[in-house]
Write a protein that binds this DNA or RNA. Sequence first.
DNA 1: GGGCACAATATTGTATACAATCAAACCATG
DNA 2: CATGGTTTGATTGTATACAATATTGTGCCC
Lengths: 235, 235
Amino acid sequence: MTEHTVQTSKANSGAASGGHVASALSLAIHEHRLAPGTKLGEDDLGEIFGVSRTVIRAALQSLAHLQLVDIKRNRGAFVAQPSLREAREVFEARELLEPRTARMAADRATPDDIKMLRRHITDEHAAMSDGEQGKALHLSGLFHIEIARIADQSTIAAFIAALIARSSLIIALYWRRESALCESFAHHALVQAIADGDGANAEDLMRSHLVDLHSALDLRESTAPNRSLRDALRP
Amino acid sequence: MTEHTVQTSKANSGAASGGHVASALSLAIHEHRLAPGTKLGEDDLGEIFGVSRTVIRAALQSLAHLQLVDIKRNRGAFVAQPSLREAREVFEARELLEPRTARMAADRATPDDIKMLRRHITDEHAAMSDGEQGKALHLSGLFHIEIARIADQSTIAAFIAALIARSSLIIALYWRRESALCESFAHHALVQAIADGDGANAEDLMRSHLVDLHSALDLRESTAPNRSLRDALRP
DNA sequence: GGGCACAATATTGTATACAATCAAACCATG
DNA sequence: CATGGTTTGATTGTATACAATATTGTGCCC
């Protein structure tokens, strides 16, 4: 089963213990290349990344703590499938944290920060133009994390990063097609408010942006049938 | 070094993979029986808990994700020593999250919830009377987590639980003796507001309670010299 | 043909062995 | 005596072996 090159191979090529594996998996989830519910077998991942199950296991546990994967004892790890309730909670938490954070960012942003935010938006547009929706979604998330970083509150920033990671899963599950690319404009206006140092405006814009996102989801009991059906079929 | 009873011993007596170890360590940290900076050697812990380094490692990584322990590559795990900056951030985050959560709790609390909160206060008093300050501090933290649970927001509750865990370390490092047992009264008034369903009052009480806690810490650059000295001596 | 018990298989949980790395002790040298 | 490099010891990082558990396939009985 486990056939690495040799025991004493390069081994120590990557970064720190499984950090690389966790990053790669996280990116794949963010970009919607791994669908919610996907089984993440340890042997498979070990072969793919060329490391032993030990490091795979550490990476999966790390992702489980972010609630990006769900580890069931003696069953294995699966890409998480946030419930409707969890989806609501995540966006309520974001609506509680991010507006205030945006205000703080507006108070502290430097010209370099603004430049980086604008580049994020440009990259996002480019990805969208190239049809790489997954990458665009990931960049959109990074935009929010960047604002938290600018606010210089690393603790809150870590929380927001975790919420955005879960948001990616939620969007994969509950997004409804009708709503579309309003994103770009909201981000653009937000950057302008932050560049102007207008904290109150940034706070309001972030709040309404999140409400827009939230309302673009189908979070009624009746919806998300495909997932429920699968769940009814498999657990 | 590693001498367990026998390889095929009981092994599966506890709960899930290292969960017991993580809980025991977490409790010890909460109750100030493990001081910030304490080295947590894997072999030592393995012998203490009667499990292999594998499960110890998983527990330590779990605690590291909660920022209760700090894992330095090739150096080992240490009980975390939050910096002044981190301490400020933790309390700012709590002041952002908990008042709103207390309001939600007031809106949803049942008589059983109130009973449980009152019992927490009673237990806390009892522990304090017995001179078990560590246990009292732990129960004080559980009180806050219980409110988040009552608010029925498990995502935010998890964040608050993480913040309270770090608060325990912060109190261990930066508490100044002068301020004393105001806690009990604040908690008592808070329970009353929640029992009355007075969300606005609960929110205000929680906010001022947290501000009191925050101001009972010595968070100036000049303070916390013992820790800086140790750090200058040892890292 | 449907349903259940049992065996075979696959996958995870845990322990241990080995390799890499770091810290401190040590000795040589100026 | 201070200082620098080397070596020794201890500790962590990773891989693998073994044990426990769940899942799946098969055959028997009804």
